[in-house]
């Protein structure tokens, strides 16, 4: 769930809007470059974007007794990195803000930053680092997708807390720090606890999706650098032991 319209006082919403705008421009630039490199990436891009569309339309009940939706950004982050994911996330958020009154126009920048950039950035870095270890590729995808989702809402809480504490304290002085910590705990209690089980489900869904993409167009994933030749081998022929890729499950 995104920050609702009007919940970010100035100058916070302006700052997030400008930041997101810069990232979106960089993302569009990178997107053009990628597509020029290989037209076939367009199909994967569409699928990655479609996953954000589908998963962020599903409002699921959580153990905390409230509902939230997954982000679906993990797949795009693994395949294309955080800049291009920001562009895809932005498209979904614009749709929801303009037609569904979900999220908002003034909060669009902050929501794009957390869902499109911050979550996917952490996921992407973690994925690259873990790829160097001999971790199972599905476990790695699961972790990345989980982090992309969960980190989004951690930042959402912090964005809301910082802006609200700033409004409450009337600036950075005085009671800002104390209020900020109190607010952060309150918002994390709402967003993070609701999101935790949903992020686990999302991680599993993205891992399954990744398997089917790798099975049908594994060559493109190798070209993108998302998986290595050996990993692809172990996905296409799962029962054959592949050197250099230890299995976690038997």
């Amino acid at each position: 769930m995104h920050i609702m319209e009007g919940m970010l006082p100035g100058p916070w919403w302006e700052i997030w809007t400008v930041l997101s705008l810069i990232i979106i421009i960089a993302g569009i630039y990178q997107l053009n470059k990628k597509v020029k490199e290989n037209r076939e990436y367009l199909a994967l891009l569409a699928v990655a974007g479609a996953f954000i569309f589908v998963l962020s339309s599903l409002k699921l009940p959580s153990v905390s007794g409230s509902c939230s939706h997954p982000t679906g950004t993990g797949l795009a982050a693994i395949l294309f990195g955080p800049l291009i994911t920001t562009v895809l996330g932005f498209i979904v958020l614009v749709f929801q803000a303009l037609l569904l009154a979900h999220g908002g126009i003034t909060t669009l920048g902050a929501n794009t930053f957390s869902m499109g950039f911050f979550g996917p950035l952490l996921a992407w870095i973690l994925y690259i680092v873990l790829k160097k270890t001999k971790i199972n590729v599905y476990v790695n995808v699961f972790i990345a997708a989980f982090v992309a989702d969960f980190a989004t809402y951690v930042l959402t809480s912090i964005q809301l807390a910082s802006a609200q504490a700033y409004a409450f304290a009337g600036g950075f002085g005085g009671v800002f720090m104390d209020t900020f910590i109190n607010y952060s705990i309150a918002f994390l209690g709402i967003f993070a606890t609701t999101q935790l089980p949903l992020a686990i489900i999302e991680g599993l869904i993205i891992a399954v999706a990744f398997k089917y993409i790798a099975k049908s167009r594994g060559d493109l994933l190798v070209k993108l650098g998302a998986i290595t030749e050996e990993q692809l081998e172990s996905i296409v022929k799962p029962n054959k032991e592949v050197k250099g890729n230890e299995k976690i499950y038997s």
């Binding site: 769930m1 995104h2 920050i3 609702m4 919940m7 409002k59 009940p61 959580s62 905390s64 007794g65 409230s66 509902c67 939230s68 979900h102 999220g103 809301l160 609200q164 309150a186 918002f187 709402i190 967003f191 609701t194 999101q195």
Partner: peptide, 13 residues
Amino acid sequence: EYGGADGAAEDAV
């Protein structure tokens, strides 16, 4: 209630 987490945050504010 199974309301939205965004609404719950709004109430918290």
